[in-house]
Design a protein around this nucleic acid. Structure first.
Lengths: 126, 126
DNA sequence: CTGTCACTTGAACATCTATTCAAGTGATGG
DNA sequence: CCATCACTTGAATAGATGTTCAAGTGACAG
């Protein structure tokens, strides 16, 4: 008699929470730029900081956030530590968003009285 | 050895900025839950508020943010205003993230000395 | 060993963001 | 037309988050 439209398992709520944190990590221009940079290939923190024109510790903190969400990989090479995108999944997520961002309207859609198109998912994903 | 890895057009920077705002909109549990709810079908604000157990105005504000990023559609039906997912692209984004969230490690990966796998994108997307 | 290099981390500050209440808007139904 | 319903919006507050400086860590070169 409750949860009228959400046959979600408790685990799904946790997954949503998790996904939200993931999105939040992606949701900052500086961090996203960093990821796009890493999509071109691995980089050490110093270089990444140089490309971005930011402080070393700033970039390190950004990578910390990204790593906490499993978005980047990390390996040592000599004295440097190389970061890269964690997997193809991450790249997909980013490029999908970039596509949507380019297609989407210029962020100025006052009201539009009726927008008939509403997408409905194929039932459940689970 | 300058702009070593970023042949980005100026427009791409704007796209990244845009994508980041999009991710930020997705990056909050309450808003993401709302979107997942809408993925099951359209809903009016009152109902959505009831499902979520939140104030009407709270949900309205959330929808405002989502609408500003083009994530939801809106149409009037009688006295109600029905919201839904904007398009399949949005659903893809969400479900991709949910998958990654489920696959990913339990958010406790202290260091892992060497993680050899670093994904490198197939050159450019442009 | 020891010094140094490359990076990480803690704390402080500033900024941004979400939620809420109250007031406003506008289409609908009578 | 007018009252009402369903929703939106503005302002205030509280909580979260990013950046920076300074200090800390750890591996590698000598």
């Amino acid at each position: 008699m409750c949860t009228p439209s959400l046959p979600d398992a408790a685990g799904e709520l946790a997954a949503i929470e998790r996904a939200a944190r993931l999105f939040r990590a992606l949701g900052e221009t500086s961090r996203l730029r960093l990821l796009v940079t890493l999509a071109q290939g691995e980089a050490c923190v110093s270089d990444a900081a140089a490309w971005a024109g930011d402080e070393l510790s700033t970039v390190s903190q950004r990578l910390r956030v990204l790593r906490a969400e499993g978005l980047v990989s990390r390996r040592r090479e000599g004295k440097r530590i190389l970061y890269g995108l964690a997997d193809r999944h991450v790249a997909d997520l980013i490029f999908n968003a970039l596509e949507h961002a380019m297609e989407g309207r210029p962020a100025s859609e006052p009201f539009r009285k009726d927008e008939p198109k509403a997408y409905v998912s194929h039932d459940s994903h689970r």
